[in-house]
Design a protein around this nucleic acid. Structure first.
Length: 773
DNA sequence: AGCACGCCGACT
DNA sequence: GTCGGCGTGCTC
């Protein structure tokens, strides 16, 4: 990095300019001049403090340097350099540029997504006394006087300081008044929000070190303070070397409080030191677990390594329960033994503490986790760990942004999973695809693992871009589950009116009688997804989204699952005025109700977004289910993600039709993947599991392929259709959203855009796709 | 994201 | 006649 920089400065007196990215959605980067004082130290990848616009100061990132002065404006100077060392490297900047280009967004938007919030410094207002300010002014209120006095003493103050001074939260009005009176003015300053974790250590005073006679004196004096004496004794028991004893550990050991420790410090017997630590420094012991690889797994590893000799990407297609994780662990071990670095990507939901702990034990090395549940300080600590070249990261999609300097292997588990794709805020990236680009930048190898490969990956295997390794048998000789289809048309003929058919209820009862567990899958949360008027068929929709509102019985509200909007229950139809509103359709909440009615003794729990809102609730439910404190788990997609439950022998898919009828070109692929993933849950330990699928379309081709275990044929069929319809992976799609407040202007604009696009792109006009939002 | 510039309704 | 509403455009 230093060398590259030198080349920009053959002569230290030459003007230097830096291209800086700021966390704003700007169409282009901004160029600032580098003050002579910063010439020596400024580096690409560093954070710098810059002014943007009239009064805003941001921390931006230097992404480029040049000697060429901009011709049409006078650049502003960089105010300061925030960190001594870069927080990201050339590879990340190349990666950012690729993402911005490919996903049609700005570098600023990438920066917003990539950096932990605490590396994007907050702006803090500083209050300064104005030159005209005289605290003796007679027209000051009491509070104003307090502020004036404090300013006289401190020179400047933060808002927080003033809040503390007055012991009240609302100080803005006061400040505004003082500004109006021209007694004070405000200045912006960047504030570091990252709080490093500090550990306190207790040491023995130097003059007592090895001085037994004086120590005896000390103990004698302490005989009347038994708590303090016990504390000092505990200290000597814990202190094996001179590096000190951790304060909390000492207090726990001596069963004492800080109030007992402080006198010892005051007397000069002990002293305290502080050390900044990383929240992810290894503390727990690793209970290393040996993994026994099956012959099939050993062969698969050989095959993967062989492919890697000529191909950079390998697709590992292994049936559920074939033990893909063992293969990943073996490959990670091999990589880090040689000093390699590994990025292991998994869908967000799979990152529970239990899974991370299990992986650490199996790998025998510490793994750093990176996911959305970390708080901002923890994220910065991970960032620092990676800058310090920690060998293994286990992360959700945003982990691709970490500041790697070297990468040798990237593993993408559940490669097909749609949660690798970010939809809403830009950048709308797919972490699996982005990982490929990242691997290319680092010349790393990529292993994509899945039981149900995405059509994109299969396509890349077919055209020889990826190597393919298959695992067709389950680990430990497990049998594939028995799949049974329940024809709901027939059930209706014999009087079925509910959501759970008689055969399924019987199977559940049988399973519970055998002291085994059940998972029911219904891909919709809430009580019922439609709330409509029976007189005029009017459905209640979200005021923002044009999406049907879902009725939530527990909260007794209507909720939009798209934007989160809540509405009170409407009893009179807003369209026709009749009191004939009615719920229609089934979500997990309603299934739970129905099941409680049929099986009152069963312990039932829901696992969906609504029951897992709080921080550890997901892990809690999973834990209870593992401990057999729950008999039946009703869940949405959440139950499909790589959870292994020993005692689950029955899985019910309540409505295959709901999955298959989704209006999206990928719906068949998704439905197939989802059902296969759910079907892979049971029968993990002793015997063959049982999967029951309820559907009104037992002859549907997806159902056919699932029951006949004909994944290859299904993929072939899907690919043929995709090709015919000019869909991915054969063609690429871009979604263009047109927005306007006025419907007419929106329609007109969209029409003009469509005509222009057809003209210029030559995309055939009969394939009309409109997206309005 | 902010903030300034700029053009149309309810007030002194 | 002005204060202020938020629509539009710019930020080195």
């Amino acid at each position: 990095m230093a060398d590259i920089f030198e080349s920009y400065h053959p002569d230290a007196s030459a003007p230097a300019y830096a291209t800086v990215v700021v966390p704003l959605k700007l169409p282009k980067t901004l160029t600032y001049s580098v003050p002579a004082a910063l010439f020596e130290s400024i580096q690409i990848g560093q954070r710098v403090e810059v002014q943007v616009g009239k009064s805003k100061v941001y921390s931006g990132i230097v992404v480029d340097m040049t000697d060429i002065m901009p011709s049409n404006y006078e650049p502003r100077p960089i105010l300061s350099i925030v960190d001594d060392l870069p927080i990201l490297f050339d590879e990340q900047i190349r990666f950012w540029k690729w993402l911005a280009d490919y996903y049609c967004c700005t570098l600023g938007e990438i920066m917003i997504a990539a950096l932990p919030a605490h590396l994007k410094l907050a702006r803090e207002i500083q209050i300064l006394p104005s030159p005209f300010f005289n605290p003796d002014y007679p027209d000051l209120s009491h509070k104003e006087y307090l502020i004036a006095e404090a300013l006289k003493n401190n020179g400047e103050m933060s808002i927080e300081g003033i809040q503390k001074l007055l012991n009240q939260k609302s100080v803005y009005r006061l400040i505004k008044k003082l500004i109006e009176k021209k007694y004070i003015f405000v200045k912006e300053r960047l504030k570091e929000r990252y709080v490093p974790k500090i550990k306190k250590y207790i040491h023995l005073s130097e003059h007592l070190e090895g001085n037994d006679t004086e120590l005896n004196e000390v103990f004698k004096k302490l005989s009347r303070a038994p708590k303090q004496e016990a504390l000092l004794l505990a200290f000597f028991q814990l202190a094996e070397n001179s590096s000190g004893v951790e304060k909390t550990e000492l207090l726990v050991k001596a069963n004492a409080a800080t109030s007992h420790l402080n006198p010892l410090i005051k007397k000069g017997i002990l002293f305290e030191s502080k050390k900044q630590i990383n929240r992810f420094d290894k503390e727990d012991d690793i209970d290393e677990k040996e993994i026994k690889l099956s012959p099939a797994q050993t062969t698969a590893i050989d095959e993967i390594e062989n492919h890697f000799k000529e191909k950079s990407t390998v697709l590992l297609h292994g049936v559920t329960g074939s033990g893909k994780t063992n293969i990943y662990i073996e490959l990670i071990k091999k990589t880090i033994v040689e000093g390699g670095k590994v990025l292991y990507l998994v869908p967000e939901i799979a990152l529970t503490t239990q899974i991370i702990k299990r992986l650490i034990d199996q790998l025998g090395t510490d793994i750093i986790p990176y996911h959305s549940r970390l708080n901002n300080n923890e994220r910065v600590d991970v960032w620092k760990k990676i800058i310090d070249k920690h060998p293994v990261v286990l992360g959700a999609r945003s982990a691709v942004f970490l500041p790697f300097q070297q990468l040798d292997l990237i593993i993408v588990d559940e490669e097909h999973d749609s949660s690798f794709k970010q939809y809403d805020p830009a950048p709308r990236y797919n972490a699996r695809d982005a990982a490929m680009v990242l691997a290319n930048i680092f010349r790393a190898k990529v292993l994509l693992g899945t039981a149900t490969p995405s059509l994109e990956s299969i396509h890349n295997v077919n055209n020889k871009k990826y190597g393919l390794v298959e695992l067709k048998e389950r680990y430990g000789g497990l049998q594939m589950p028995r799949i049974e289809i329940i024809d709901l048309k027939k059930e209706v003929q014999i009087g079925f009116t509910k959501q759970i058919s008689a055969p399924l209820i019987d199977a559940i009862k049988y399973t519970l009688d055998n002291n085994e567990q059940v998972i029911l899958f219904q891909n919709r949360r809430g009580y019922s997804p439609i709330y409509k008027c029976t007189t005029c068929e009017n459905k209640i929709k979200c005021i923002n989204c044009d999406v049907n509102l879902t009725y939530h019985k527990y909260r007794n509200i209507l909720n939009c699952h798209y934007c989160g909007y809540d509405s009170e229950l409407i009893e009179v139809c807003p369209a026709c005025g009749n009191r004939t509103m009615e719920i229609k359709g089934f979500g997990t909440e309603r299934i739970e109700d129905e099941l409680t009615e049929s099986l009152p003794e069963a312990r039932i729990q829901r696992l969906d977004l609504d029951t897992t809102r709080s921080k550890y609730s997901y892990e809690k439910i999973i834990h209870q289910f593992e401990n057999k404190e729950i008999d039946i788990l009703i869940g949405t997609q959440m139950v499909t993600k790589g959870l292994d439950f020993e005692h689950v022998s029955l899985v019910g898919i309540l409505s295959a039709d709901m999955l298959m009828a989704y209006p999206d070109f990928r719906s068949a692929e998704r439905a197939y993947q989802l059902m296969m993933q759910v079907a892979g849950r049971p029968g993990r330990i002793h015997k063959q599991g049982h999967v029951m699928i309820q559907t009104y379309q037992p002859d549907h081709r997806i159902i056919h392929h699932i029951t006949h275990n004909s994944q290859d044929e299904f993929i072939k069929e899907e690919l043929t259709q995709r090709n015919e319809w000019k869909y991915p992976p054969y063609h690429r799609m871009i979604k263009i959203s047109v927005k306007h407040k006025k419907t007419d202007a929106l329609n007109d604009g969209a029409k003009i855009l469509a005509i222009e696009l057809r003209k210029q792109s030559g995309v055939y006009p009969e394939n009309k796709k409109t997206n309005q939002r």
